[in-house]
Design a protein around this nucleic acid. Structure first.
Length: 286
DNA sequence: GTGTTTGTTATCAA
DNA sequence: CTTGATAACAAACA
């Protein structure tokens, strides 16, 4: 499940590899993945150079030298894998580094670049998508669909605190809402609530000022730490070289139901909150 | 065959 | 208009 730290890892790695490179070929293997018609996607992308890669929350935006953007959302099982020229064996369907777990079984789209490298969009579940949009559309999506993002100057304690005042929804649903805070998903919501000692079921307007302050700090701390560890690999997340993220080893509650709580030695519980599997310590989290 | 996994949106209700 | 709650989607795996 790529959340902010995973998508940021991909953004950084991919930018160092494909910025200033030009798309020479587009291979659409699954038309559902591409939100434009196949013909227009090809026309809008082939011959264009990637100028930069932007991101908001979990959404990537590849800026083209045409001024347009390729929006890329990985949803649950999407992957962006880069194979430079020297890693591609002639024919393009097998790779010199076969030890890595790359498979084209779920490849939905392949972009070939001037450098000879190829970018693979893999997505087992087919929730993810790519979509070419104008600069105006990209800016509208970034502005309207996302609240402030952790670790940015828009994410202030004041802005964060305001979210709680009149809301009666549970804190977990609030943190998962991308329009309120950009980038958190199921894993990091469970982890930040554990770190802050708050139960996922607590109503937002019952969270105290000190708890909000603590949660604010923990969100920034955990997201920064997870980026440093190149994200969490659960099912299918890998970076653009096919490598797993190591934050999975630092998870305190996610997928640890029945194990000992790292703080109190009690047992981590699992329930369902906001329609999602939810992990927490009944003793530490009030 | 069944239940489980989750990011996002549609839909309906209040 | 805002907010909230829930289902639905997709597909593989145990």
């Amino acid at each position: 499940m790529p959340e902010l730290p995973e998508v940021e890892t991909i953004r950084r790695d991919l930018a160092s590899r494909i910025v200033k490179d030009k798309v020479t070929q587009v291979e659409i293997r699954d038309t559902k993945t591409v939100k434009n018609t196949a013909g227009s996607f090809r026309t809008l992308v082939v011959g264009k150079k990637v100028e930069d890669i932007d991101r908001k929350g979990k959404l990537l935006a590849l800026e083209l030298d045409s001024g347009q953007y390729i929006l890329v959302h990985l949803k649950m099982t999407g992957q962006l894998i880069w194979k430079s020229k020297h890693k591609i064996v002639a024919g393009g369907h097998s790779f010199s580094d076969s030890a890595c777990n790359f498979s084209e079984r779920f490849t939905r789209l392949v972009l070939t670049f001037s450098s000879g490298g190829k970018l693979y969009f893999n997505d087992m579940r087919r929730f993810g998508y790519v979509k070419v949009v104008t600069k105006e559309e990209k800016e509208k999506v970034f502005a309207n669909n996302f609240g402030p993002e952790p670790l940015t100057k828009e994410f202030t304690p004041e802005a964060f605190g305001k979210l709680f005042a009149k809301r009666t929804t549970n804190i977990k649903a609030l943190l998962l809402n991308q329009k309120l805070i950009a980038g958190l998903g199921n894993i990091y919501v469970d982890e930040t609530l554990f770190a802050a000692g708050i139960r996922p079921t607590r109503r937002a307007n019952t969270i105290t000022k000190p708890e909000i302050a603590k949660l604010y700090l923990e969100i920034n701390r955990i997201i920064a730490l997870a980026i440093k560890h190149r994200g969490t690999t659960f099912y299918s997340f890998v970076d653009c070289e096919g490598e797993k993220g190591s934050f999975v080893h630092l998870l305190k509650v996610y997928d640890r139901a029945g194990e000992k709580c790292a703080k109190c030695g009690g047992m981590v519980a699992k329930t369902r909150v906001a329609g999602r599997g939810t992990h927490y310590c009944p003793k530490c989290q009030k």
